[in-house]
């Protein structure tokens, strides 16, 4: 095996096998908050069956789960809990943001909702929709499976070790808040 990042034949086959096994046995932690939870129940239900992807069983403990599916709006009161749950999960872990409220705050651009959970935790697959049709969710799961398959040996490095131009830690009260959008008039009916 050469250390230039590429393995030899056997190690890559082994890696491919391990990733195949991982992608077809996803233990999900459905972090359900809001209306998308109803569509999640549909996806897990008999019509749009999640069981055929091997992802049927929800594990309600983060220690036992692989995939954190954040379903629905996360607001600032819930954000520390989401962060705690994410940190309690063991590697390898993936995050799916289900619904547009989890992806970007949805149409709740106000003081309560976090404008996208990727401000708090890193996300692998974003599934937009309000709520997304179950077919979209299944497409998202398949994309996650494709991502898992090609992920290879260097998983996802822990984010603290990857310098990113956007990884600027911002704490409330430390400097001027960037989350305040001061529009010239408070009436912003153009953004529905």
């Amino acid at each position: 095996m050469n250390y230039a990042g590429q393995g030899g034949f056997l190690t890559t086959r082994l890696q491919a096998f391990v990733q195949w096994a991982r992608k077809f046995s996803l233990f999900q932690y459905p972090f359900v908050t809001a209306c998308c939870g109803m569509e999640y129940m549909s996806v897990a239900g008999p019509f749009y069956d999640l069981d055929r992807f091997g992802a049927a069983l929800p594990r309600f403990s983060p220690r036992q789960a692989d995939v954190l599916i954040v379903v629905g709006t996360v607001n600032h009161k819930m954000a520390p809990i989401l962060r705690k749950v994410y940190e309690q999960m063991a590697e390898p872990k993936w995050v799916i943001s289900f619904g547009v409220c989890a992806t970007s705050g949805g149409f709740y651009h106000n003081y309560a909702a976090v404008q996208g959970i990727d401000l708090i935790i890193p996300v692998d697959v974003y599934i937009p929709g309000c709520p997304p049709r179950p077919e979209m969710v299944l497409d998202g799961i398949m994309k996650l499976q494709a991502k898992i398959q090609q992920q290879g040996r260097d998983m996802r490095l822990l984010e603290e070790t990857v310098p990113s131009p956007y990884a600027r830690t911002w704490m409330p009260g430390v400097e001027e808040p960037v989350a305040v959008t001061d529009s010239p008039s408070d009436r912003d009916v153009s953004e529905a």
């Binding site: 908050t33 819930m78 149409f107 709740y108 106000n110 003081y111 009916v189």
Partner: peptide, 24 residues
């Protein structure tokens, strides 16, 4: 834990624009 500021947001929306917020 799911407070989404419906009441305040709808003060900035027209009468018909409130309807999608009421769905949720």
């Amino acid at each position: 834990y799911l407070h989404r500021a419906f009441e305040k947001t709808c003060e900035y929306k027209t009468w018909n624009q409130v309807i999608p917020y009421t769905d949720r």
